[in-house]
Design a protein around this nucleic acid. Sequence first.
DNA 1: CGACGCGTTGAATGTTGTCAAACCGAGTGG
DNA 2: CCACTCGGTTTGACAACATTCAACGCGTCG
Lengths: 238, 238
Amino acid sequence: MPPTCPHNTEINCRDCRMNALCLPIALELDEVDKLNDIIRRGRPLHRDDHVYDMADEFRAVYAVRSGCIKTYSTDNEGTEQVTGFYLPGEIFGMDGIATASHISAAVALETSAICEIPFSQLEDLGIRMPSLQRYFLKLMSKEIANDQHLITLLSKNSAQERIGTLILSISARNAQRNLSRTRFRLPMSRADIGNYLGLTVETVSRVFSRFQKLDILRVDKKEIEIIDLTRLQHEAGI
Amino acid sequence: MPPTCPHNTEINCRDCRMNALCLPIALELDEVDKLNDIIRRGRPLHRDDHVYDMADEFRAVYAVRSGCIKTYSTDNEGTEQVTGFYLPGEIFGMDGIATASHISAAVALETSAICEIPFSQLEDLGIRMPSLQRYFLKLMSKEIANDQHLITLLSKNSAQERIGTLILSISARNAQRNLSRTRFRLPMSRADIGNYLGLTVETVSRVFSRFQKLDILRVDKKEIEIIDLTRLQHEAGI
DNA sequence: CGACGCGTTGAATGTTGTCAAACCGAGTGG
DNA sequence: CCACTCGGTTTGACAACATTCAACGCGTCG
């Protein structure tokens, strides 16, 4: 395996191809090495492997190196609420800080590699490296901002707008990683999309069909091609 | 004015009647004094006075000492999304950390007193007082948890359940401040409630009427009395 | 007094959910 | 090799809940 292969356990932050998106972006090179020293990289996760479960003790936050992680919570009646999809370069697991135990679960949607960042060590490092501390606060604040965008989406927008917005979000995040903005594979099922956006599977399916009929998207199972980006933005209300 | 009057500008954290809910809860007495030194208390805000506007430079976070603060964001078409209601003892304004400018606005719903906590000084203090740093991270994490509860509410619950849950939330937060759990005044308008919960004013009004007809609530404009708490919890899906 | 903001109520409309059926591809076992 | 199941997806018909549009009541303030 070349050193930059995302599934490689031996990789370090300095060489990781995500270091322009991930925590290292805030750090000087020597600081990156200190961060690298506390990070634990396990073997790749397979589909349906859990990173943590609801109510698990909170010990670490995580960075996605490859694949896709879904976070969700379950209420007392057992119904799931998907709270986020995390792509390479993104950090998840910050929900547990307040209560010392996770209020959501995290599961791999496909074969994924993640970096585990033990929180107590990250806190210690933050005290010695204010830029890291500040960047971590920024990350949490960004998480709040994301959640509030989702709240607005759920509160104000139609099924079509919600789904259009999600596709555009994934497209933009792919572009950040120098992947195609217009052709990609959705890592999540229709059920996950519907759950995340407060819609039924049937509605999700119908909206995909409508977008296809309107020549805005070409949809083949999970493969998506955005044919008319402008019109998709318009239908998404952007 | 007695020293504990919530509108008193001269009050300090040590004597503030909210110190069992607010940031001081994490601190030793001498640390509270250090925190107190950086806090700025302006004159009380009146209804519709803004604490900050969208896109204002992020300089501070804020604690509510009395009254009620509403946060909201506005999209490019000018439609508002209410993102939160903050009661005494609660902290708001953390949305701006990521972007250095606020992504929402904060406005007083009634005469309110707030404490301004300059963020750069809070950061400095946090480096010297790890317990403060940790508690602030907890606060942000709690904000994330709140947002995710709202996401679930919007995504999965009916109008009746959403409104019931909001009333129960305000009731519980009142109880924390040793106010009545069953009789209180809603500080926000029907429009704000609807906006927050993704419903129209008419729907909010209808649900209040239904709860009243079912002898679960007694509603008189903004005055609320919870007559049957158990049944309200049931209707709210709890 | 009249205008206005806010809240309530009614009737009609519509988007989305529910229920049911069928499809499709992948994997399994006879 | 084929029939089979199974999960995920699609489509249709119908029902339900919330929205929309409209009217009205009530209190406040100029």
